[in-house]
Each structure stands twice: as structure tokens, then as C-alpha cells.
Write a protein that binds this DNA or RNA. Sequence first.
DNA 1: CTATACAGTACCAATTTAGTACTTTTAATG
DNA 2: CATTAAAAGTACTAAATTGGTACTGTATAG
Lengths: 183, 183
Amino acid sequence: MLRISKLTDYGTLILAHMAGLPGRLHSAAELAEALGLGLPTVSKVLKTLGRHALVSSQRGAHGGYVLTRAAEQITVADIIDALEDQPFGLTECSASAGVCSMESDCRIRDNWLRINTVVRQALQSVTVADMVHPDAPSPLARGLVSNEPASHRMHGPARLGSRAAATSLAACIPTPRADDQEI
Amino acid sequence: MLRISKLTDYGTLILAHMAGLPGRLHSAAELAEALGLGLPTVSKVLKTLGRHALVSSQRGAHGGYVLTRAAEQITVADIIDALEDQPFGLTECSASAGVCSMESDCRIRDNWLRINTVVRQALQSVTVADMVHPDAPSPLARGLVSNEPASHRMHGPARLGSRAAATSLAACIPTPRADDQEI
DNA sequence: CTATACAGTACCAATTTAGTACTTTTAATG
DNA sequence: CATTAAAAGTACTAAATTGGTACTGTATAG
Ligand code: FES
Ligand code: FES
């Protein structure tokens, strides 16, 4: 359905929140509380992010997680790579080689590869830092986007009633980053 | 998982195949045969495409489907809109308004809206015609894409053994379109 | 040595997606 | 006008994925 999974969405929320208070340790419980998500769920996401070296963890009492790099260096593409298990690609055929029997004489596959690349570049052009602070030179804004109506619905929180809260939540306003994108 | 559904993938295959013999009527059975897909499945996809006016149908004996517009006028985004039921958007929050409780003070949502727009533009820049003929001035190619390695795997055919064939299949090679995109 | 917090594994439940079956309507053809 | 080919519609079933939870283990602070 051309959606990232909820876990991935939670990942952006969590990282954005952490980026709000950089350098500090954040326990899974604290994040869960702040974002209105279930503790086990937050834990799971953090563990995975840890495995992909986006956060590092401190065990034991007063332990917690910190970002391993500056928020400016973590792109949405990184988060997706960490949390989505399938390899990046809009179609099965175009996500990995050797899966489709007709791959050799398929004329469509190459197109998907191109589309994938463009999409990925869009995702790489937005960092966690962009998510956090509202105003700043927005890369997607200048020329990249023509801003036709894109609809919207619901973010991180999904079915748990608790999640419906998440008032303090860290990041949101629109501010893609300003370096590597001349898409 | 940031994938389009298989049905949508089949849709591109089907439309591309039809674009190969334009003007002609194609029965669902013929297409199923040619693409190595199940007849009921192809039928389902065609019905949906019909409902969204991408193909028109002729009932009765010797009936079938034809494209309603030139292949150049049907974009991948059109196909996705027709076959995916959820509204376009990478996250739930950003796909429709009013679903997330914290929408008003969410700083992240706006970023997703931008990302959605960019992604959509990429999808709008490729037409069925591009999918069909191999070589031609490729819009995504010139400047739009930096061509970093994007992986690949498997296309239309998935679990039916029959689908593994699809030799004649219509379209594939890389050739996005050349009009409306200055992303 | 106890409390806190991360790590890993495994599992279960809910949703979504894919695919099939069956019935009805429409049109061509002899 | 009967027969046949093909699409339209409806509904259902089965499979795969996702989301979420529970439990057990390990490390560290105090
Ligand atoms: S959490 Fe940002 S709009 Fe839902
Ligand atoms: S590569 Fe699988 S159908 Fe094109």
C-alpha cells in the first residue's frame, strides 16, 4: 500500500524526540510515556535501531539510549533501512535481483529501479534534525516540491487507546534538510 | 514495507502489455495467458482499472478491454491511485487528515507531506508508454536520478507456479517520460 | 545484592492482501 | 431466439504480514 510500517513511523517519532534533548540518555519507558506508545513496542524499535547503530545503549540502572550521530546525519532513509526488513524497493522484482523468473527480458524492471532511486533520494534528503526544528532552509521546499495537495491521516499512534495522547512528542513541523539534494 | 501491492504491480504489467497492441481489445483470458497470471486475478485488476477509467470494457462475445487514453497519458501514479485502496501517503498520519490525535501540534507531519509530494511526482513522471519502449529520452535519467545502487528482486509473478512464465510480457526497459517533471 | 534498564527470543493476535468461486448481465452470432 | 463468450458484481477463504506482548537473560549503579 505504499506505506512504511508503523514500527518505522514510531522510529521517526522516537528519534525525533531524542533529538530534542541531545546527549541525554532516554530510557525506553520515558520515551514510551512521552510519545504515548506501548513500552514493549518502543523497546523493540529501540533495540532494532541499536542493532543498526542509529542509537547506542547504556545498560543497567540509569541506562538508556542516545543517538550515535547528530540528528542532521540521520536521514529518513536510514530509519527505513533499519526498521523495514525487506530491502528497499517499491516492487518485489525491483527490490532484489534474481527473484523474478522473467527478470532477464523484463522491460519494466529497469523503470522501477529508477523510480526506486528517486524515491530513495527524497527520503535521504530529510533528516531527523529537519523533523525537529520547525523553521530552517528547507531543501524539499526550494524547487524540489511543487506542493500539490497531498492528503494526510494519522501518524504514529494507531490502535492502543493510550497512544492517542502523545502530547509532548518531539518533532513535526516541516523542514527538510539543506545539504545533499539536487534531485 | 514501502511496497506497492502485487495487484498494483500486476496492473502495470497488464497495462504495459495492452499498450503494446494499442486499439485492440484484450480479453482478460488473453492477458492472463500472456502474462502468466491467474485469470480471476487479472479480471479483478481489470475491473478495478475500469472503475477508475484507465481501461474501458466491451462486454459480450468478443469483448475485452482497451486503454481509454494513450499510454503516454497513464502514469504509474494513476495506476497506484486506482489499485491501492488507501489514499496516497507514506504514513497513516500524512495520508489523510484528522486521523491522528496529535495532528495539530505534530511537527513531523508536515515533513511527511512534503516527502509524499516528492515521491508522488516521481511516480507521475513515469508513464505506461515509458515502460513499453526501451529507448527514448528518459526524464528520470537526465539529472533527476543519480543512480546509486537500488536493489531488485521479483516482479509481478509471486506464488502461483504458473505465473513464473510470462515470457511474452509487454513492458520493462527503463524509459520514464519526458513532459511534466521538473521536480 | 537489589533495583533498574537493556537484550534476545519466541509467540500470539489482528489486519491486510491475494486469490477463488459463483452468479448476473451484456453482446455477438448462427 | 438460443447459444456462447466475455465482463460485472458479490462474497468468501486462505495466506502472509504486522503489530504487539510475554518471558527470560544480562549488565550496571548504588
Ligand atoms: S504523530 Fe504527527 S500527525 Fe500523527
Ligand atoms: S522483473 Fe519481474 S516482471 Fe519484470
